[in-house]
Simulated scan of single mutants.
Amino acid sequence: MKAYLFTLLLAAGSLTSIAQDSLAVDTTTVKESSKAKKSIKVVGVEIGKSKSDSIRKPSSKFSFQLTFSRIDLGLATFLDRGSYTLSEENSFLENQQFKTNNFGFEFLQTGYRFNSYFKIYLAAGLDWNHIRLKRDITILPDEPKISYKEEDIDFKKNRFSSNYLRIPLSFQFRSKDDGRGNKVYFVAGPEVGFLITGKTKQVSKEMGKVKFKDDFNFNPFRYGAFARAGYNGVGFYVKYYANDVFADNQGLTKDFKNLNFGLTVGF
C-alpha cells in the first residue's frame, strides 16, 4: 500500500509538467521599388499575406501513445444481491474496509480528438483488488467452486487479490482553460477486463509469509462502466462491474458484484 501511494505521488508530480512549442519570430525589411515595407514572419508564415500565399499543415487528430495515466487508488467493496451487507454464504469475505483497496493505471492509449472539448480513446491498463480478510481462513486453489478452510492461526495479514488487464473505452469532455490555464474534466464509458491472476498472501507467526497464485474462481472476463471527474489532472472515479466477481456456477451465490471508488490522477 505504501508503494502504491509513493507511485501515485510520483506520477502526480510528473503529470504537472507542461510542454510548450517555441515560435521563432523573424523581423525583416523588404524593399519594393521606392517604398519600404516591414513584415513579420511567425513560424515561416508571413502575416499580412493572403491565405493562398501560406500553407499550414494541420496536425493529426488521431493519437497513439504509451502513457502512465488514469492512476486510480481507492476502496474496493461488494454488493451482495444489491446490499452492502454480505450474506451468510459470502460472509467468509468479510473484510477490513479501509484496507480493502483498488489500484490501477493505464499504459497505452489510442484515440481521436473531435475538437478542443471532446475526445474518444481506447486504452489498456492493469487493475488490482486487494481484499483484506477479517477471518482466519485460507482460500483454497483448484476447486470447482470458491472454497476456504478455517485456520487455527492468528494471521497478521490475510489478503485475497485479483489482477485484471483493463480495457476502457473513454468519452472525454473538458472545459475551456480557466484563468490559471487549467481545465475541468469528465470522462465516462464502458470497460472490460481479462483476469491475469488471483493471489493470496498470508503473514503469521506460525507460518511466516506465504503467497499462492491461482485463478481462485474469479471471473475470467468482467464488464462494467466507469466515470471520472476532476480538475487540473486530479479527481475522483467510480467503477461498477455488471457481472459477478466469481465465474459462472463457481461462486456461492449469484448477483455478487464489485464496486470501486476513490482518487484518480491524470486524464
Rank of each mutant, 00 (worst) to 15 (best):
I47K: 12
R56F: 05
I47V: 14
G82R: 00
S33H: 14
I55P: 03
E89A: 01
S63K: 04
V45E: 06
F78K: 07
A24F: 07
S59M: 07
T100P: 00
L15W: 15
K49R: 08
T27A: 12
G104M: 05
F105G: 02
K37T: 13
I71S: 14
L15S: 15
E32P: 07
V42E: 00
F64L: 13
K37R: 15
V45I: 10
I40D: 05
I55G: 06
N90E: 06
D80T: 07
G13N: 13
S52M: 03
S91F: 12
T77M: 02
K38G: 09
E88G: 12
S50N: 04
A19S: 09
F105K: 08
D72A: 03
V42I: 04
Y84R: 02
Q96Y: 09
D53P: 04
K37M: 11
A36V: 15
S60T: 05
T29P: 02
L10W: 13
T100I: 01
E46Q: 15
K57S: 06
K41D: 11
E46K: 15
N95D: 02
V45D: 06
F78H: 05
S54E: 09
A36C: 12
L73S: 09
A24M: 07
D26V: 12
A76V: 01
G48N: 09
L66D: 12
